[in-house]
Design a protein around this nucleic acid. Structure first.
Lengths: 142, 142
DNA sequence: GCCTATGGTCTCTTTTAGTAACCTTGTAGC
DNA sequence: GCTACAAGGTTACTAAAAGAGACCATAGGC
């Protein structure tokens, strides 16, 4: 690292390391304008991906979505749906029935996230066993 | 929905709708054993992806990672690194220098997540403008 | 002596998630 | 006529998590 290829690093001027090895992250805008951060703040939470996944199969009403994600509360579902709507990923339509029914559906923009999201789901399915094994091993050695 | 193809839904027995339209989610285990949930609880938080992204460029010491992600606190970084280590995505190595230095690097398993994660980053970059536009529009119409 | 750097931990405060009760309006049951 | 229930939320309250900042041991530089 410092010089040569010492595996055991001694004190070095780290600013050089930072410049040399983390360019793609340093190149990104620091905070609020970083697309990655912005997206992860949206879909990275506990419920957004599950909500998108539910709506992927077609438009659904509020209560249907809630039943599809059993352990979400009304409050969190409302909040999640509002957030996704605000970002243009889903659309909300109110029908003047009595009592009124509300339907949520993916927008064209919303559909485009299903592909990268699907890649992640696939990774999760494939590696879940390995992750659980690593977790057990870690907890065992404490 | 209920019968016919009425766009304006009246009261229907929703259990039928649930069964008909949300099968892929209903098919997943309800909570703790769902791979998607499990993975999202890990990498879905605010810092994990950024940490993985930083370590994607090579092994780094604690303080280097911290400087690469400017607004993370030591506490959160420690917690994030521990979590990723526990799940086998990164490895931790302590070198007995004075003061001791600690190096973190992706494991083979950790490297495999970079591809699906990359897809998401690309999506974020591509759609960021559209998302921000949708957000402005939503906030404007309030 | 004092400040710096290492990789953390500990405590405290603030933010966020989650729970449960309530709201409105109309229909159904009794 | 009274109670109950459905829809899609909102509101108040509580539990959990995130974040800020001080502290620790040890050694080197000035």
């Amino acid at each position: 690292m410092g010089q040569g290829e010492a595996a055991v690093t001694t004190r070095t001027s780290d600013s050089a390391i930072v410049r040399a090895t983390a360019p793609d992250l340093a190149g990104r805008p620091p905070a609020s304008d970083c697309p990655l951060r912005d997206v992860l703040d949206r879909i990275g939470d506990k419920w957004s991906t599950l909500t998108l996944g539910t709506l992927a199969s077609g438009p659904h009403r509020f209560s249907v979505v809630q039943r599809a994600i059993p352990d979400i509360s009304k409050r969190m579902l409302t909040q999640t749906l509002r957030g996704l709507e605000r970002d243009g990923l889903i659309a909300r339509a109110v029908f003047p029935t009595k009592p009124p029914s509300v339907e949520y559906r993916l927008t064209p923009l919303g559909f485009t996230i299903l592909e990268p999201l699907g890649a992640l789901v696939q990774w999760a399915d494939e590696k879940h066993a390995a992750i659980k094994a690593a977790r057990s091993a870690y907890d065992a050695s404490n």
